[in-house]
Design a binder for these strands. Structure first.
Length: 913
RNA sequence: GGGAGUUUAGCUCAGCUGGUUCAGAGCAUCUGCCUUACAAGCAGAGGGUCACUGGUUCGAACCCAGUAACUCCCACCA
């Protein structure tokens, strides 16, 4: 039967030859849900809690989510299997700017303009949209196998979470930590809102640097004469204008001054002068400030306080007027006097032409500079002055920093601690107002006289407001106007670990007392400050406690070229397609295979392929065992093998436990992978599997081996489960493992306890494995079929009792017999493992000359090696300084090398005889 | 401009207190195999100036200094 036919034939049989993930995934996910295995309620067990970093409610699953949530699921499943009360709280973030932008776009398609709607009408549309499309991402997470307690699903705009936002706003306002002020903010003209510094992404772009001439206006003929008499006429004419360099010529109409460095000798004649803005002819002063860099550009700086942060500060210092020529949407307003209504970028192009025509444009240069873009809308950020709400950070930053520095909160990997500290020590106040409707409206009310009060309800606000009214008529609710703005999304997400357990309204409730502080937070380093730092602040401020103990920072998922995977680049595979192709288990393994904490992950689909191959390997190991049947008459020939695997398994458990403790998840997976593939499949199963018995449907095996193997396999399923939950659950329920009750599932099984490890046995089996490999090498070298049985003779020089392992050697080496010998066997193929000599007598004698060369080479190597050890041991300083165990080790190496040299010399002389 | 990090096999990465024959793993590659669980497999093999230059040390991939390249974060140079 050829290979293709065999596949077709076997597919038709009841047990599939390959693992088919799809069916198992749907089946077991719903089974877990139906049986409430993800559900967590407080009980007497130790809690283990993770709150999900809530994805944007508008989001769709991308590779970053896949990585992040695979890690969380592995952690939560492992905790569950350690008998802890594992609680993974899912949810979504209302993501004010991003969502509002999507809703506005949706309305636009319907022909509705946001401007024409009332706030209430808009929010109705927005909620309708959210209910329809929001949270798709959570369903996608289910495909990955995420074992969240879905009954706990929260949304950052749920009524109680919103209430917590309002309460904390009021709390901080009363403390004086929230204030209102005019500041230069980052304005997103597309979203028409302020965004925080953290939401501005700076990119280097090619720009043009325009050199523009400003006519000096107050220059008088007398002034020219009063100057240096030696100056030529030409030079004096040159001083009739000065030149500035700018990347933003459309803002010249907002200029308030020209600034030069007082030490700049080129421009001393300009001190105290005034100049005219080209095109509009408005007169502005020349001011002096050392802020200006003399060797950059022309040394003359246009000062535009309304549209540049530095200029704004210069403006305050020099008491300059602020002329804001931009509308909220980035078009020019009437204060610009020209190009009114034009978009800023269109205006830039047009004004360049106008300047050129007016003869005011000296030249244009190509120039690279940093431009800020909105993270949410990708619009170019406009520095803009506006009245905003701010939250003071300095007092909250201190304790939040201490938690991390003292180690109460561990950042994994630790390198992020430095970055964290740097940020916390240089923290700036947080602009928390956003000019949007989607979010929690700021609980501030304005009085007709411009004063404001902060209160939870309009009634309370009215009461407060009337207190402010010294005398006279009482205000009515209708006299108050609530602030139109909402708070920054992060002002709700920083409360997440507390608010999901209702820790604000009911700070001593059973849930929060039980689950908080949570254990691990798994998130991206990009939001270490946005979110993680602020959660720590909120934890301290509102509960006097840390919100989580460990923060596992994942890397960014990149493609093979090192580019960040993103929808806009189109370089990201659709995660659901991957799951379809490789199975959820395969993709999970693929994500984890190469993702140490904090390092970016170079995603390669090949890893998923490796993952699905692994699942298939497990499946086939199962198939092998499934084909066995106990014959009570048989005795157990595999006692040593069973003992060995038991030890090896326990040793692997120790390794895996340690790797998890250090959050080295990919290493823990790799240890598990090798345990299954190499130790269990390649060695253990090969050692114990019955030699093929023709003519029987099932292969007969002794009871002890059968039972031990099934027990091992079941334990392996447990260890595998956090990584590959679906296939393990599928196999777990096979009748091979006996009767299962409805609740007896792998997902809630307890991980095997670590048992005894026989280190000597493990070491000796390693020798046996090497011997088997050497025998195979001899076969390979001599082109012998694996079916030919060979005789092996051992000249034992070490302490290993090879007799224990004869059965294993015979089986895996396909030997006809194993014997001991006291003498070298002339003409036989030979090899050395440790200090023991092995001989395989072949029909054809070996090539004596080739063997001599091989042995001589090895001899030379060993002699060199011995020499280096001897020189080490002969070095007085080594003997004095090195630790005793190191010295002992060297002595042992020396003895071994000497023994081997003796053996090889004997072999050589035997060959020559 | 400031700070942090990275550099080990073709790729992705380990190498934890400087000391095993220490230069490793997985993948990929090459060779031979459809050998009664698995070709998504099996048996083997090759592959390295540990970025570079110095230093410390009996001993350095590991510690120190410098250099180079890359990455990230922060920062207002028009």
């Amino acid at each position: 039967m050829n290979h293709q036919c065999k596949i077709l034939f076997l597919r038709a049989m009841s047990i599939s030859k390959t693992y088919q993930p799809k069916q198992a995934e749907d089946k077991w996910y719903s089974y877990w849900m139906e049986n409430g295995f993800f559900r967590s309620v407080p009980d007497e067990r130790e809690p283990y809690t993770i709150v999900i970093p809530p994805p944007n409610v508008t989001g769709v699953l991308h590779m970053g989510h896949m990585l992040n949530n695979t890690i969380q699921d592995v952690l939560i499943r492992r905790a569950r299997m350690k008998g802890k009360n594992a609680c993974w709280v899912p949810g979504t973030d209302h993501a004010s700017i991003a969502t509002e932008a999507k809703v506005v776009a949706m309305l636009k398609e319907k022909g509705i303009n946001k401007k024409d709607l009332s706030r209430e009408e808009f929010l109705e549309y927005a909620f309708e949209w959210k209910n329809k499309y929001g949270g798709i991402i959570l369903d996608q997470l289910k495909k990955l196998g995420a074992s969240c307690d879905w009954e706990r699903t929260r949304f950052t705009m749920d009524p109680d979470l919103s209430e917590a936002v309002i309460d904390t706003f009021i709390h901080l306002y009363k403390k004086g930590w929230i204030y209102r002020g005019i500041r230069m903010v980052n304005w997103d003209p597309q979203g028409k809102t302020a965004v925080s510094d953290e939401e501005v992404i700076r990119k280097e772009v090619n720009q043009k640097l325009y050199y523009i001439k400003y006519q000096v206006s107050s220059i008088k003929y007398q002034d020219l004469n009063a100057g240096d008499a030696n100056q030529s006429n030409d030079l004096i004419l040159d001083t009739n204008y000065l030149t500035i360099a700018t990347t933003r010529p459309e803002t010249i109409m907002a200029d308030a001054a020209i600034c030069i460095n007082p030490n700049d000798e080129r421009y001393t004649h300009l001190h105290g002068k005034k100049v005219l803005i080209p095109l509009i002819g408005r007169e502005i002063p020349v001011i002096l400030d050392e802020y200006v860099t003399m060797d950059f550009g022309t040394g003359c700086l246009k000062v535009t306080p309304a549209h540049d942060l530095n200029d704004y500060e210069l403006g305050i210092k020099h008491n300059l007027p602020v002329i804001d020529i931009l509308n909220d949407d980035g078009t020019l307003n009437e204060k610009a006097t020209i190009l009114v209504g034009e978009d800023r970028f269109a205006a830039r192009k047009k004004i360049a032409v106008l300047l050129e025509e007016a003869g005011s444009l000296e030249k244009v240069e190509e120039y690279k500079s940093q431009v800020g873009y909105s993270e949410r809308t990708n619009a170019v950020i406009e520095p803009k002055l506006s009245m905003q709400w701010f939250c003071k950070m300095d007092e909250m930053a201190g304790p939040a920093l201490d938690y991390v520095l003292k180690g109460d909160i561990k950042l994994i990997p630790e390198k992020f601690t430095n970055t964290y500290r740097h940020w916390m020590e240089n923290v700036k106040d947080w602009c928390i107002s956003r000019q949007l409707w989607w979010g929690q409206q700021i609980p501030a009310w304005y009085l007709p006289n411009g004063q404001h009060v902060v209160a939870k309800t309009v009634e309370e606000a009215l009461e407060e407001a009337n207190k402010l009214q010294a005398t006279g008529s009482k205000l009515q609710a209708s006299d108050l106007r609530q602030d139109e703005d909402v708070v920054d999304t992060w002002f709700s997400s920083w409360l997440w670990p507390i608010s999901v357990f209702d820790g604000f309204k009911d700070p001593n409730n059973e849930e929060i007392s039980y689950y908080y502080p949570t254990n691990d937070l798994v998130t991206a380093p990009e939001i270490l400050f946005f979110w993680v730092a602020r959660m720590i602040m909120a934890g301290h401020e509102f509960r006097g406690e840390i919100p989580f103990k460990n923060v596992y920072l994942t890397g960014i998922v990149r493609d093979k070229l090192g580019r960040k995977m993103s929808k806009s680049l189109g370089n990201s595979p659709d995660p659901l397609d991957l799951i379809e192709k490789y199975g959820a288990d395969g993709v999970r393994v693929g994500m984890l295979l190469s993702s140490p904490a904090g390092n970016d992950l170079m995603f390669d689909e090949g890893h998923c392929k490796q993952g699905s191959a692994f699942a298939n390997k497990i499946w086939n190991a199962f198939n092998l065992i499934k084909g066995w049947e106990v014959d009570e008459r048989l005795t157990n020939p595999n006692a040593v093998t069973i003992q060995w695997f038991n030890s090896r398994f326990n040793q692997a458990l120790v390794d895996i436990e340690e790797q998890f403790k250090q959050y080295r998840l990919s290493e823990a997976l790799m240890s598990t992978y090798k345990l299954v593939w190499d130790d269990f499949c390649a060695w253990y199963l090969e050692m114990v599997k019955p030699t093929y018995q023709a003519g029987v449907e099932k292969q007969q095996i002794d009871k002890e081996t059968y039972e031990a193997t099934i027990a091992f396999f079941q334990n392996i399923l447990k260890v595998l489960h956090p990584f590959t939950p679906f296939i393990t659950e599928e196999l777990w329920h096979d009748e091979l493992f006996g009767e299962r009750t409805a609740k007896d599932c792998c997902i809630v099984a307890l991980l095997p306890a670590i048992g005894e490890i026989d280190a000597r046995l493990i070491a000796e089996i390693e020798v046996v494995k090497t011997v088997v490999s050497e025998v195979r090498n001899v076969r390979n070298a001599k082109q012998l079929s694996p079916k030919d049985k060979l005789p092996l003779a051992i000249k034992a020089n070490s302490g290993i009792d090879h007799k224990h392992y004869f059965a294993i050697l015979t089986k895996l080496g396909n030997l006809e017999e194993v014997t001991f010998t006291n003498d070298k066997i002339a003409g036989a193929a030979s090899f050395l493992v440790g200090t023991d000599e092995f001989y395989i007598a072949l029909e054809q004698n070996i090539d004596v000359d080739a063997e001599k060369i091989r042995l001589s080479e090895e001899l030379v190597y060993l002699q060199g090696f011995l020499k280096s050890i001897e020189s080490k041991l002969g070095n007085e300083r080594f003997m004095q300084n090195a630790k005793p165990e190191i010295v002992n080790n060297e002595l042992k190496k020396k003895a071994d090398a000497e023994t081997k040299i003796t053996i090889i010399k004997e072999s050589l002389s035997a060959l020559s005889a």
